[in-house]
Every structure is written in structure tokens, then in C-alpha cells.
Write a protein that binds this DNA or RNA. Structure first.
Length: 459
RNA sequence: GCCAAGGUAGCUUAGAGGCGAAGCGGUGGACUGCAGAUCCAUUACACGUGAGUUCAAAUCUCACCCUUGGCUCCA
């Protein structure tokens, strides 16, 4: 039984999809006006893991993500750079998708661009207008907050608080909290609408897209913590007003922030790090491990030393994997006396692992169970209690872990065959030298290979 | 001001009434020609402070101290 922490109720709830084992998942994608940063990476790695686990547990997941490719920030940036907004958007969208692929985020079924859903957006606004949930002024179409008394139910705010102490940027609005569905603009880029030329507001694209692919109600909506207010509130107000069906979403999931040295990452503080910067220095899997070593809802603090720790921790798992691979290949011993006991041990470990994951995707606890198991099996291996068939089962379990967590778990061996043969010759020569106890020359070979990142470890 | 999250060994993170956690790092030992990996031991008074509830509190209650974040740009 999978339990998910639902931001709406602030409780962990049992996951029960609307339609049997089919899950409709929507996660807010980026506004593509600049390079993606490591905070984006945190969020999308988290939802990638969540999707992988749900699939592992037999759910069929349709993972939909929007791409905000029309927005004031895009237009501003484009005009600064003297390029077309759509060009700029496409460029950063490509980079975003590249970044995600490198990070092993690969479970999104469909990326929906805002600009390719204008008819749906306009249609939603028309329906809001027709039922007096929205009104028109000289500057645009606005959602009438007062028509939706539940506004604020996700972020637990009330309308009075929201309308106090606020300088309204547009005084044609009835209430300060009313938000734009359509902005009347006749500068590029614009689209035609029943209300003249203009552009959609920020919140409406998501509900237009989710209604198009999922309908008015679906299972899980995710995003960063910073989107709860006002973005997700606005989505709820729009969709539930249009359809009259509640709730729009069964489970709201939000990822915690990624901070840098305890502070929020921001350009003005100068601690801003893009995914590309990161990947110049660190392996994507190391960052992935770093992200998954903290629970997805907790804040996570980025630092060089944290990444070093992650690297060493991940190495431990890889080395264990390599060790059992070698043992499976070898013909050292075959001992079946302990098989029953070890199979039980492994099953128990797996069941604990799944229990941790079931509990709102508790990856840190799941990892601690993996490490415990590695330690345990290392001990059994040292005592020569482990048969090959057990090792193969251990390997299968680790591979399953790798699939859920998104680690490839095969040795990074990018050498071509010819190089491998040459290395094998060197190893053979070194073996002969060692037989003759020529330590000086054999250490020399090992050290030189080490310089080329070829690690030789004697048994 | 309002609303959140949190303070757990040197560091990073879990846990959530009774069995003293996981990883990283440090030290000593076993094994190695050496190194590495692995194992064993150790680092260790672990739970912000003060009260209370309880047979039992890191975990529940209350108060207090401190940190961080959000409050219509935001993953």
C-alpha cells in the first residue's frame, strides 16, 4: 500500500487512483527563458523516481508535463538578446530536455507546449466568462476570485489576508487577488481571441493542457513548493469553476527547495548554479544520488562536500556490484548450505525496502536498508556462506534498486575492444612480473594505468 | 505581522513512545609484497532548552531559544 503526503490535507494518504491501476500524473514544467538550474533538477529527479517506483509497483503511469514557452520573461529576455521569443524558448527547451536526459529523467510521456494549446486555453476562458467566473476590462480577462470562496484551500490562506497589503499592478481589476487569464496586447507575440489580440495568463495553460489530456479530474499533480501559491491555487479555481467537479486533483505533491549553503539559490546572491555548470564537475549519477539521499519534501543543501559524500557512498554500491559480478564469474566456491537462510534474508530486505518506498517514497530510509544489506552480504561472502545462485539473486535485487532509483549499475567501460585487449596484455605482463615478485615494475604498470583512470585491484 | 519546515554523533540524512540508526569522514587491527576493496573494533554522553504526561519520551503535551523558507517572478 503506497502512501502519499497530500499537500491539500497535509497528511499521508493511501494512493487510490481514479481508474484502477492507471495514474494520470501532471508536473509543472519550466518556463524556458534561461538555462535550467539544479533546483529544477531536484524536482524533476524526484518525480522521475516517483514515476519509476509507481511503475515498479504495477501502476501504469501517464506522466504529462507542460512547457511554458510564452511568458513575459521570455519576451523580455528575447528582446534583450535581439532574438524572436519563440526562438529563445525553443533553444532553452532543447537544453532543458538535454539536461533531463543526462540526469536520467526519462519517464515523461508527453511535453505539452503552451503555444500549441491556444484553442484549449481560449475555450477555457470562454467557459469561465460564460458562467461569470471571469470578467473583462480594458487590459484583459481576469478570474474573479470572489466567485470561488475556496480560493486558498491548498495554501491555507484566506481571501481577506490575500487582499490586504497588496499593491495592485492593474487597477482595472475588481479585487487585488484576481489574476489574469488573458492579457490584451497587440505587440508580438500575440494570438487572436474573442477579446482581441493578446496572450494567455500564466495559470491557464496548465488547466487547459490537463483538461485536454486528462479531463477535469486526475490523480496526481506535482511541482516545486514555490508553486503552491499562487499558481496551484489558481489552477484549482479555474478548473473546479469550469467543471464544477471537485477535486480537480486527488493528490498534490510538492518537492522541497534546493538551497546552497543554507540559503535559497538566486542570481542576486551569486550562488546560482545551472545544471550545465554542475555537470562540468560532477557525474550526473552522483548528483542524482545526492538528491535521493534526502527525502523529496525536505529542503536539501547543496555543497561541494555533500557531493563528495554522495560520490563516495554511490561508489560503495558500485564496488559491491563489481565484487559480486566477479564472484559470479569465478569458480571459487559453491556452498548451498546457507541458501535458505540467505534467501529469507534477501526477501526480508526487499520487503523492508519496498515498505520504505511505500511510505511516501522515503528514499533515505530505502538507501539505508540497501547499505545494511550490502554490509550483511559482504560479511556472508567473507565467511564463504554465499553460493552463486544467491549472488545472482542479490544482483537481481540491486538491479531492481537501480531501475527504481535510476542508476545504470554497470561498470562504465567505454573502451573499445582493441583497447581492452591491449589492457589485458598489460595485465598479463604484470601478473608474470608479480609471480617473479618484481614489485617495482608491477606497481609502475598499475600506477600508470591508474593515471589513465583504469583501476587495477588485486584480489 | 501571517503561514510553513526544521534543530539527531566530526559532516550529511532517516526514524517517531520501550529493541541506541545509515552513509561519509577519523583511528586501530585482520587480510595483502604494497595499495585498494572487504571484514572486525573504535570514534559515540545522538536526539535545541526547561517543565509535564507515562511503568517507559529523541518520539506525546506546553513554554521557550535558535535556524531556514514562503507571503502573487519562482522547480
Amino acid at each position: 500500500m503506497i502512501k502519499i503526503y497530500n499537500t491539500m490535507t497535509r497528511k499521508k494518504e493511501e494512493l487510490k487512483p481514479i481508474n484502477q491501476n492507471k495514474i494520470k500524473l501532471f508536473v509543472c514544467g519550466p518556463t524556458v527563458y534561461d538555462e535550467s538550474h539544479i533546483g529544477h533538477a531536484r524536482t524533476y529527479i524526484s518525480f522521475d523516481l516517483i514515476t519509476r517506483y509507481l511503475k515498479n509497483q504495477g501502476f501504469s503511469v501517464f506522466y504529462l508535463q507542460n512547457i511554458t514557452d510564452i511568458d513575459d520573461k521570455i519576451i523580455k529576455r528575447a528582446s534583450e538578446l535581439g532574438v524572436e521569443p519563440i526562438e529563445l524558448a525553443r533553444k532553452y527547451e532543447r537544453e532543458y530536455l538535454d539536461d533531463m536526459r543526462v540526469l536520467g529523467v526519462e519517464n515523461v510521456n508527453y511535453y505539452a507546449r503552451a503555444t500549441e494549446h491556444l484553442p484549449e486555453i481560449i475555450n477555457q476562458i470562454e467557459r469561465l466568462m460564460a458562467n461569470d467566473f471571469a470578467y473583462e476590462t480594458e487590459t484583459g480577462i481576469y478570474f474573479d476570485e470572489s466567485s470561488f470562496p475556496e480560493f486558498g484551500k491548498l495554501s491555507r490562506r484566506n481571501l481577506e489576508d490575500l487582499n490586504i497589503h497588496r499593491i495592485s499592478p492593474d487597477d482595472t481589476k475588481r479585487n487585488p487577488g484576481d489574476f489574469a487569464l488573458w492579457k490584451k496586447r497587440d505587440d508580438e507575440p500575440f494570438w487572436d481571441s474573442p477579446w482581441g489580440k493578446g496572450r494567455p495568463g500564466w495559470h491557464i495553460e496548465d488547466t487547459a493542457i490537463t483538461e485536454e489530456y486528462f479531463g477535469p479530474q486526475y490523480d496526481i499533480h506535482g511541482g516545486g513548493l514555490d508553486l503552491i501559491f499562487p499558481h496551484h491555487e489558481a489552477e484549482i479555481a479555474q478548473m473546479e469553476s469550469i467543471s464544477g467537479e471537485k477535486p480537480m486533483v486527488r493528490y498534490w505533491m510538492h518537492t522541497g527547495f534546493l538551497n546552497v549553503k543554507g540559503e535559497k539559490m538566486s542570481k542576486s546572491l551569486g550562488n546560482f548554479l545551472t545544471i550545465r555548470d554542475l555537470l562540468q564537475e560532477y557525474d550526473p549519477e552522483v548528483f542524482r544520488f545526492f538528491v535521493l539521499s534526502t527525502h523529496y519534501r525536505s529542503p536539501i543543501d547543496f555543497s561541494q562536500s555533500a557531493l563528495e559524500q554522495s560520490k563516495n557512498s554511490l561508489d560503495r554500491i558500485y564496488k559491491f556490484m563489481e565484487n559480486i559480478d566477479e564472484l559470479i564469474e569465478s569458480d571459487l566456491y559453491e556452498n548451498n548450505d546457507y541458501d535458505d537462510k540467505l534467501i529469507r534474508k534477501l526477501l526480508f530486505t526487499r520487503s523492508n525496502f519496498l515498505k520504505a518506498m511505500d511510505n511516501d517514497f522515503n528514499t533515505p530510509e530505502a538507501l539505508s536498508i540497501i547499505f545494511n544489506s550490502i554490509k550483511d552480504f559482504n560479511r556472508e561472502i567473507n565467511e564463504k556462506n554465499v553460493s552463486k545462485s544467491i549472488l545472482k539473486r542479490v544482483k537481481l535485487f540491486l538491479l531492481e534498486w537501480g531501475e527504481i532509483f535510476g542508476f545504470k549499475l554497470h561498470s562504465i567501460n567505454d573502451a573499445d575492444d582493441r583497447t581492452k585487449e591491449l589492457i589485458d596484455i598489460l595485465i598479463d605482463i604484470r601478473g608474470k612480473l608479480r609471480d617473479k615478485k618484481d614489485w617495482e615494475l608491477s606497481d609502475f604498470i598499475r600506477s600508470k594505468l591508474n593515471d589513465l583512470n583504469i583501476i587495477l585491484e588485486d584480489k
